[in-house]
Nucleic acid binder design. Structure first.
Lengths: 225, 225
DNA sequence: AAAGTAGTATACATCATTGTTGACTACATA
DNA sequence: TATGTAGTCAACAATGATGTATACTACTTT
């Protein structure tokens, strides 16, 4: 109650850190409500920063929105593929279960990034230019070419299925699982089921002989457009 | 330029139809921007209805939002399971590929409902009470119990994977595919790959013997909490 | 010591949205 | 013909967001 230094409580030498704080806050509201309801006022409030400061860094609401989107894209790439070379080196080949595990871990530990990314996908209708997505497809393609995956896979679709469900799962599962233990169990359930699915499929072949017949002769898919 | 009947151009005897038109418009904006940016003004404009009329049907913005959410839920259930009994009857058992095909068709033909549903999932963090979801899980469970699906499946997770990717796919694929032919091809790609996946998996077993070993001895999953 | 930089505080005009109210109209039914 | 219903139209106060601008402060560098 004593001091009241009236104005300018906080001064920062490092504008970059302020920028990051704003972007982080923007990410949070983006993850909460989607890109359309991202407001500068709200972001500034949440970042503990004056609204004017936010406008100094990002001239308009749109600028902030775009900057946040690319920031999300960069961060998700960095978080996921930042140490890829080392891990890959250590394991000679990046094993399938590890990839899936990493993906699930990432999604569980970064629900905000996942949500933001998904919102973006839903908004831009296909984030084909997204570096994360491109890298993910590329790695998968090499994995298959090296003989680890079935040749008749439609890589893009398969990549989409694994990525979309892995990123969306923690959001969905978040409802049931409050504490850490429950969340870990949910994560494990997903990894196990996904692993089981990519190893053995889901159907009992004898019961679907016609389908097995039809899909066994399927040619390798044509992806290019 | 001639006539100007000044006021009350349109009068409707059937309030239910107006209500539906408002809900339909609400669904459209909901699918576009997410639930947080649903505005009564915008909805009324889009429905070609006076704002006051919208307020007559839905006292507050929140009421409209909730009504829209449950309407989406009902419509998606109706669209998908409305004729389930007949189809099921005709085919004796509801075949796996037909189910997947129907799901994909639905998602392709109702991108707005899909988007709205997904937004809802992302907003409410787990639409466990959703009748569509519950029915989907129930049918899947029976399908497995009748010996058509592998016993070690974690039904809920599996249901989630198929449902989430099937509903999200058209949104994702919508970017690439403008015309009907391209969209149909995208739909077919998804169905084929998903079918292939549930039939045979994605990995080459010989290359992942350790994993095969580990997951072959996996007990049936415990789902109950 | 002076000048520049990063951020605060505040005010302002503009605009959109919410929710409410009151007057009016077209239609159907009793 | 009278009454109720469904909807239009217009106005209004309150709120909150966008952008802009100006004066002020603390800190750093020259």
């Amino acid at each position: 109650m004593a001091d009241s230094s009236k104005t300018a409580r906080r001064n920062n030498t490092d504008p970059e850190s302020t920028r990051r704080e704003i972007l982080q806050a923007a990410l949070e509201v983006l993850a909460k409500d989607g890109p359309e309801s991202l407001s500068v006022t709200e972001v500034a409030r949440r970042a503990g920063v004056n609204r004017g400061t936010a406008y100094q860094h990002f001239p308009t609401r749109e600028d902030l929105a775009h900057a946040t989107a690319t920031w999300v894209s960069e961060r998700i790439y960095e978080e996921f593929y930042g140490d890829f070379e080392e891990v890959s080196e250590r394991n000679k080949i990046y094993p399938a279960d590890l990839a899936l595990e990493r993906l699930s871990d990432f999604a569980m530990n970064n629900p905000e990034l996942s949500r933001a990314w998904l919102f973006d996908v839903m908004a831009t209708q296909g984030a084909v230019t997204d570096p994360f997505w491109n890298r993910y497809v590329k790695e998968l393609r090499e994995f298959v070419q090296q003989g680890n995956g079935r040749k008749d896979i439609d890589i893009e679709v398969y990549a989409f299925i694994t990525l979309a469900s892995a990123l969306l799962w923690p959001i969905w599962a978040g409802a049931h699982a409050r504490d850490t233990r429950a969340r870990n169990r949910m994560r494990q359930r997903f990894v196990d089921e996904m692993m089981r699915l990519v190893l053995f499929g889901a159907l009992v072949p004898e019961r679907h002989s016609a389908l097995v017949e039809r899909f066994r002769e399927m040619p390798e898919p044509v992806e290019a457009e």
